[in-house]
C-alpha cells in the first residue's frame, strides 16, 4: 500500500482542477467550433477545405504533447520510482494515440482534395504514423506482463527510446522534401495567417489541452483505484494463506 506514494494529494488537486478543466473544455471547443466553421473565412487557395486545419493541426500538437508528457512521466518513474508518474504515463497514452489517429485521418481527408492523394510516404506522414505505433506499442507492452510493474518498466523504456521520433516529426518538413507544408505555414501567425483563422485555431488547441486534463484526471483516478484493488486483493490472499 505504501508503495503507492500518497495519491491522496493527487486526488485533492484533481478534485479542485476537474470542474475548471471541464468548463474550459466546453467553452473553448464551443467557441473554437463556431469560429472555425462559421466565423472564419475560407482560404483564398484552399477554399473551405482549410477548415480541416482547426482539427488537424491541434491534434498533431496534442499527439506530440502527449508523447512528451508520457516520456517525462516514464523517466520520472524509472529514475525516482515515483508510482504516480507511471500511472499518469499510462493515463496519457490513449489520449495521445487518439489525437495522433485523428491527425492522420484528417490529414488524409485534407490531402485528398489538396494534394490529390490520401497518403504519401514522406517523412512527416511516416514519422507521424510511427508515433501512433509507438503509442500502441507502449499500451500493449504495459499490459503484457502478469506483474504490472514489469510491464510498466518495459513500456517506460520504450517511451523513452521513442522520444527520438519527436524532433524527427518536428523537423521532418525542413530536413526532407515533402508535400506537407513547412512549419512556416502553421506559424504564419504573424503576417500571413489572419487573426480570424489564428483565434479559432488557438481556441481549439486550448480546448484539446483542457480535454486532455479532464481525461488524464479520470484515467489516473481509475489507475489509482485499480492499483489499490490489486494491493487489497494481494493482502487478502496473503491473509488467507496465513490463516490456514
Amino acid at each position: 500500500m505504501h508503495r503507492f506514494a500518497n495519491p491522496a494529494r493527487f486526488m485533492r488537486i484533481a478534485a479542485l482542477v476537474y470542474p475548471w478543466a471541464v468548463g474550459v473544455t466546453i467553452l473553448t471547443l464551443g467557441a473554437g467550433l463556431w469560429l472555425g466553421l462559421v466565423g472564419s473565412p475560407a482560404d483564398y487557395q484552399q477554399g473551405e477545405s482549410v477548415r480541416i486545419m482547426y482539427i488537424h493541426v491541434p491534434s498533431a500538437w496534442m499527439g506530440l504533447f502527449c508523447y512528451v508528457s508520457m516520456a517525462v512521466c516514464s523517466a520520472m518513474a524509472l529514475v525516482w520510482k515515483h508510482p504516480l508518474a507511471d500511472l499518469m504515463a499510462r493515463a496519457t497514452a490513449p489520449v495521445g494515440a487518439a489525437f495522433t489517429f485523428i491527425c492522420l485521418v484528417t490529414g488524409a481527408l485534407w490531402g485528398k482534395p489538396m494534394w490529390g492523394a490520401w497518403w504519401v510516404w514522406d517523412a512527416r506522414l511516416t514519422s507521424m504514423l510511427i508515433l501512433l505505433f509507438l503509442y500502441l506499442g507502449y499500451m500493449a507492452l504495459a499490459d503484457a506482463f502478469d506483474d504490472p510493474q514489469r510491464g510498466q518498466k518495459a513500456a517506460a523504456i520504450l517511451a523513452l527510446v521513442g522520444v527520438v521520433n519527436v524532433p524527427i516529426i518536428k523537423y521532418s518538413v525542413d530536413w526532407w522534401n515533402t508535400l506537407h507544408q513547412p512549419a512556416s505555414v502553421v506559424k504564419m501567425g504573424g503576417p500571413s495567417i489572419d487573426k480570424t483563422m489564428l483565434i479559432p485555431l488557438m481556441l481549439m488547441a486550448v480546448g484539446f489541452h483542457a480535454y486532455w486534463v479532464v481525461v488524464l484526471i479520470l484515467r489516473t483516478r481509475s489507475e489509482i483505484a485499480a492499483a489499490k484493488v490489486r494491493t487489497l486483493r494481494m493482502a487478502q490472499v496473503h491473509a488467507a494463506g496465513q490463516a490456514e
Binding site: S49, V95, A98, V105, T106, P113, Y211
Partner: peptide
C-alpha cells in the same frame, strides 16, 4: 464542394474524443 472532406474530419474527431471520454468515465 469540400463537405465530403470537412464533415468527416469533424465527425471523426467528435466520435473519437467522446469515445475516449466515456470509456474513461466508465472505467474510473
Amino acid at each position: 464542394g469540400y463537405g465530403g472532406y470537412v464533415w468527416p474530419s469533424y465527425g471523426l474527431a467528435v466520435v473519437v474524443m467522446v469515445a475516449v471520454l466515456v470509456s474513461s468515465i466508465r472505467s474510473a
